[in-house]
Design a protein around this nucleic acid. Structure first.
Lengths: 234, 234
DNA sequence: ACTATAGGTGTACGCTGTACACTTGTCAAG
DNA sequence: CTTGACAAGTGTACAGCGTACACCTATAGT
């Protein structure tokens, strides 16, 4: 006889709280995500949550690790480039599903999924033959690009290919002296017709970077090969 | 006789409020930055601010535009690559000075400095010979990288070359089962000795990207040249 | 001198995270 | 069956947030 009459409300648990938190943040955004709102969603009084999570900060830590857990790890049986490409795309997709996590992926106390992910990515690069320091470089460029792209994608609000032009024009209409910015005008007029697609855009830059890394792996002399070194110090 | 006795406190103005706001956010971070704290800094009651800024959101908009105004525009008399390189480095530096602005640069209502900046960058690329769609691509990769790098730089907290290793190790000590992550161990052990430098790291990835763009500008066939097209439809 | 206006004040409301004391529901041992 | 412990949920309360609204006060123009 574990449950008698009020069985309708099964008890909470850290996992249930975490899952509900991710779902609520997905729906309402980070701004509207509060302990009180989460409690209401779970049919419980706000303070009940604190029996299962230490505080909001640790709750966010756990939520971010859930996002990490949804990212595909680099496959063992793929060449490094394909493996990195897939995990980059998978990361962007996860951040599209959970856009509240953009900007928090590397800022919070790392959970197990985070560690597994980073260890696997670094392992993939090292085993592909990247020397240590170059693997660091390669990791750094890729992640900067992935996280930065996710940020821009969220901010520009180009959801679908169709809406990209609309969004650009809507944004442009809030500007008064548009005629002073001819190149912004070009964007708002040409982008709608260009069939802009965020997914393709992401892949374009990703491939540019992977191409560059591939070249360096085969002839390791650093970027800017064949150019004047040390132009200005930095 | 404009001022008589209580002249010690000169009147506020939107500009003065904005400047103080940026300074306060620089010092205390965005978390601790509140209208009340800003008012106190200016020796004034909180509601006094609302005579000069509409609300906190618009205040943040203005603050971000100040950051934009500190970014060097692409110089007219430089080749596109040098111009882009300088403005990228300048952007990172501005974001280092005002790390509270990271993640807000493209998410807020754009101010005049923002528009000037974007117009100038796009203009630089177009006048360098990038066709419209390729200029969009080029802009997208660069900005994603710049903003993403700034994000990571803030999050990992590698301030100086010396402290990079320390930070990595400090972070590692908060993990219990480190032996499960051999490649993370490698990072924490080797990074301190490698003379890691965030400024050099940024330049490495930046040059990789600029190299790639340069190649495409001279032989425009898109990234992933010489590879199987359309592997999976992303 | 009178009055309109801009700038600064004080109070108050609803929201936030969460500390602390309390009650309730469930199970184990006597 | 009772008792007592412990886990889970509740209720109240507090400090801090952004800001609406009414008020005062000093200056400027007529």
């Amino acid at each position: 006889m574990t449950k008698k009459k009020l069985a309708s409300r099964k008890p909470l648990s850290s996992a249930r709280v975490l899952k509900a938190a991710v779902a609520l943040a997905d729906e309402t955004g980070l701004e509207a995500f509060s302990m009180r709102a989460l409690a209401q969603e779970l049919g419980v009084v706000p303070m009940a949550l604190y029996k299962h999570v230490a505080n909001k900060e640790q709750l966010l830590d756990g939520m971010v690790d859930i996002v990490f857990s949804e990212i595909e790890l680099p496959g063992e049986n793929l060449d490094w480039r394909s493996a990195m490409r897939r995990r980059a795309i998978s990361t962007r997709e996860a951040l599209k599903r959970h856009s509240w996590a953009i900007g928090m992926m590397e800022s919070r106390h790392p959970g197990p999924a985070n560690l597994k992910n980073h260890n696997a990515v670094m392992g993939c690069l090292r085993e592909a033959g990247f020397p240590f320091e170059m693997a660091i470089h390669a990791y750094s460029v890729q992640d900067a690009y992935i996280y930065g792209f996710a940020l821009q994608e969220r901010d520009t609000g180009f959801e679908t290919p169709d809406s990209a032009g609309e969004a650009a024009q809507r944004r442009a209409q809030t500007i008064d002296a548009l005629e002073d910015y001819p190149h912004l005008v070009e964007i708002t007029t040409k982008l709608p017709k260009s069939g802009y697609d965020n997914t393709a855009e992401f892949a374009w830059g990703l491939d540019l970077i992977l191409d560059g890394l591939d070249r360096l792996l085969q002839a390791p002399r650093g970027p800017r090969a064949g150019r004047a070194r040390r132009g200005s110090a930095l």
